[in-house]
């Protein structure tokens, strides 16, 4: 827990030097369909195929950030309902989407676009994600043993996952600060 708080504080301090903060608070979306809902799978298919509509570096950045936000909210909701396995899966997806962002910011910069605003948005998002992750770390058990009836039990290291997720955000913010 302390680690995550320190990470988040470091992130905020570091970023406040890099990018001037003159924007409104970053807002995460409302939770969408959750696993178990009939439309959940449809939503996931649409999410995947929306990438073709979001062509272009800025649009791709928005696409991946949007999905990262969406899956983080999904993870938070699932964790709150003690659906740890599904929540962990959603959080990993959120991390993966966040990981895609620097590539597209670099591409945007290569094509001559001033990426200052884009970087600022990612920083805001990372801060917000950090807040959610640290809150979850406070609320969730450090580990959880998932014991399905007919399968082998799985130990979920929730604290490690949350710490790693915060680390992903910090790494990305550090990476894009260099652009």
């Amino acid at each position: 827990m302390k680690k995550i708080i320190i990470y988040c504080l470091l992130l905020i301090v570091f970023c406040s030097f890099v990018i001037p903060a003159v924007r409104a608070d970053y807002v995460l979306p409302y939770p969408s369909y959750m696993p178990g809902n009939k439309l959940y799978k449809v939503g996931r298919v649409i999410d995947t195929h929306k990438r073709f509509w979001y062509f272009g570096s800025i649009a791709q950045t928005k696409y991946h950030l949007g999905l990262s936000d969406k899956y983080l909210v999904e993870a938070k909701t699932l964790f709150e309902y003690k659906q740890y396995m599904l929540g962990a899966d959603a959080l990993i997806r959120s991390n993966n989407e966040f990981n895609e962002i620097p590539h597209y910011i670099a591409k945007a910069k290569e094509s001559g676009i001033d990426v200052t605003l884009l970087k600022a948005t990612i920083l805001d998002a990372a801060k917000k994600h950090g807040e959610v992750l640290s809150l979850l770390d406070e609320q969730l058990p450090k580990t959880f043993l998932w014991e399905p009836e007919k399968e082998k039990p799985t130990e979920l290291k929730l604290h490690d996952l949350l710490t790693a997720s915060a680390g992903v955000r910090i790494k990305i913010v550090n990476d894009i600060a260099l652009f």
């Binding site: 928005k62 001559g112 001033d114 605003l117």
Partner: peptide, 16 residues
């Protein structure tokens, strides 16, 4: 010029 989807990206997102 920027190969961005104009139905997603607004011109002010390219501040330069």
């Amino acid at each position: 010029r920027y190969h961005e989807n104009p139905y997603i990206v607004i011109p002010v997102e390219i501040p330069n």
